[in-house]
Nucleic acid binder design. Sequence first.
RNA 1: GGUUCCUUAGCUCAGUUGGCUAGAGCGCACGAUUCACAUUCGUGAGGUCACAAGUUCGAGCCUUGUAGGAACCACCA
Length: 896
Amino acid sequence: MSFTKSYEPGEFEPNIYALWEQTGAFQPKKVVVDSDETDTDNCYSIVMPPPNANGNLHIGHGLTIALEDSLTRYYRLRGKSTWYIPGADHAGFETWVVYERALEKEGHTRFEFGRDELYARVWDFVEQQRGNMELQVRALGASCAWPDLTFTLDENVVSRVYSTFKKMWDDGMIYRGEKLVNFCPHHQTAFADIEVEHKDEDGHLWEIAYPIVGADVSDSLTEIIVSTTRPETIFGDVAVAVNPEDERYTDYIGRELQLPLTNRTVPIIADEHADPAYGTGAVKITPAHDFDDFEVGERHNLARIQVISENGLMLETAGSTYAGLSTTDCRKQVLKDLEDQGLLRGEKKITHSVAHCYKCDTVIEPMLKSQWFIDVKRLAAEAIKHLENNEIKFHPTNKKKVLINYLQNLKDWNISRQIPWGIAIPMFHQTETDEAPEWIFDPRTNLEKIEVGGVHYYRDEDTFDTWFSSSHWPIVCTNWLEGKENPYYPLNVMETGADILFAWVARMIMMGIYVTGEVPFREVYLHGLVLDAHGQKMSKSKGNVINPIELVTKYGSDAFRLGILRGRSAGMNQAFSENSVISGRNLCNKLWNVARFIQSMVDESHTDSLTALEIAANELDSTIVNEAAVQTGGELPYSTDNLGEDWICRELTAAKEQIEDDFANYRFSEAVETLYSVIWDKYADWFIESQKIYKNISLLKVTLETILKMLHPFAPFLTEAIWQSLSWTEGELIVQSWPPRLKFDPISAEQFENLITVVSEIRATLQCLPAPSKGQKWSLLFDNDSLVDDNQLLVMKLANVGSVLSCEGQPRGLRLALVGHELYLDVPQEVVTKYRDELEERILAVGRELDALNARMMNPNYVDKAPAHLVKQTRDGIAEKTALIDRLKAELTVIQ
RNA sequence: GGUUCCUUAGCUCAGUUGGCUAGAGCGCACGAUUCACAUUCGUGAGGUCACAAGUUCGAGCCUUGUAGGAACCACCA
């Protein structure tokens, strides 16, 4: 490859990715089945939360991949056998919704087909769409092991899910229960509690009178007034509950009420559920259509009368007048009829929260259905035990508490879904009605009817909740097998969105422990939502969705990765804007040009075909080279002769250690920040500039390689493209090893730091000169200043002064405010005079700083109790500021 | 109602066990310019760290309270 003038990511990204894939760089070095020894320490495993197989990636996937791939690449460079396992999700419900919509467009409905046919049709549909997602994951640079991609409907997933289900069935943890489920009348399926969205809505609270049967003059009440938001469910009423403490009603507990619009009577019961302070304090009980009432019904052993059908229409149980009406129409009719009978006593406007289908927004109807449930007591208790035992480290840490709190209140898990696109529940019943008493487990779900011991059994037509299979993800991806050592299980880390902590992370933990006896991962990193630039949640309806692939196309994959990681911390919902990607692109461009420049210097030095060791040998006498080689284990032959060279080695080494620390603590944003600063503010601005004079070729090579390796986890394409373009590098950067420390002389490094201070002061002073003199080139005079004397060329270049000269004991012009240096800008006297205001302001500013330091030292407690090094720092500060002020004041006198 | 989090520069955010003059990017102002990079370079302005009290020699950080905001869970007959 060769260097184009500017950074053009589109030119090389696809080729670079292809190179990595072809060389097998993404595959772990060690394969599970071949490993006898358990060298777990040297293996690193992480799974990709599987994106929807037939969808497109959104910004959250972009973040997830940036995070996971940075980790993967870092640990790969650290020499671990890394296994980043990609996945694709059949996305049961999501895909089903998309498919059903397509089906409806063709004028068909799901009811025209059998389950197996529908399954086959959706499979084809997904197959057609597939590939898009995988291309996008590649575009983002994910260094994942493609041959090991797991699809959530793969055979090994299904068989693992079946064996877990069987184990649970045998352990008595699975039961079939008639329970109220969250039912979407539009999608005709039940949802887990977690999939339901509660929204505050305006509604009405109606008060309806229920006459007391046989009320006479001895009764102070002749009717009980109940409050309800759903009068149409009146036909399902089986009782009216009052609070046992509520004195208004205690005398009437046990009496019968006439149920309006019917010829039934219902009893008055006492139950804590009735809140005396709410409405009239009396509540109608409809166990078949309300979650709370269901529980009241269980406590009092009440009947469940279903009056609404699965498609949202009133059933015969509602009486012939109302049967067949929609719930909305029925409500109107019921209210009208009640009013006609004089039983409607009030109507209040209220705000209450209503459950909605998270996909189509239809109001969820609590529906009485027979479904498969998992008794979660044991699963949750085990998970809590392992969590409290600190077996999983969370980032951010507080999520562990949140999770334990959730598990402590977990209700039984409904795993049945009435959609064909998913893993079939492997249960068969004896008769043709699905409410049969006897059920058997059998994995032959491809058959509608099986024969066991001469008896026919019929398949349950439901499929599993997606989360039931997803909870096996670490187990199935790493191919965990009972009794076999697997160095990749538990995963080193599980990285995913904080929004699915309960739905997914909690379930993986429970399932991992249940199946393998071990937690499925050692650490959890949760990222927050990516919000738009104004901190608003992205949504199609708001039109503020940012497409990651568009940004990749526009600015490059690396720019996107740097941009999305920047300023982001674990678990926080944070804003994101194109600006941060632009800034990432600028860094890429910067490094691109640095590399291009270094290559041009190498070319000019005619040593491009030589290794760094040979160059060093040419440049130096052999003893120094040998010494360098010994000190660095023979790897890093370079010398540091010139000012700035020790300094950059010191800065790069500090950055390297900072990044190591950041990775260990999942501080991605800080690591990126460190890289920006070291590459741009230090390497490019000071070191490269100084090398325009010195040209230490071997050191330029070593330091550039160090930077490429350090940046590779975050900007893989750019760094690899540079690596491939440099004349002296070999192989692929992706499989190189993490850089070692660079040796340096600390005194020399400090000297350069000193020079930076001098240069910065010169630059600042030049900018403060009055208008016509500002921006002109002036000479710098030094008097008895060895640092500047020894580095005249360097100072001239860096400070952008016309020349650097000794004043020969005759100082003139503007004296610089630098203690320990005698430096003058050779400007005419009138410019110096005009500078007076600046000088006075400077004296005041330094004075304020000095006052603050003095105040600190005046406090005897500070001197006594603060650590000695801080006290010393303060003392030194006072001395320095005092000297500076004296000097500035003297200068002021001279001007006058 | 429960759990958790947030409030730092115009904007978006860092700030690790309390310790130099609270940082970054973007934006803004001023200046530079053929010599790797205008996707550039230099300089600068801009902050009562939401508020109040406490602990401490010392608080953006710890404690308590107040105000405002967010997310999730539960519930609202």
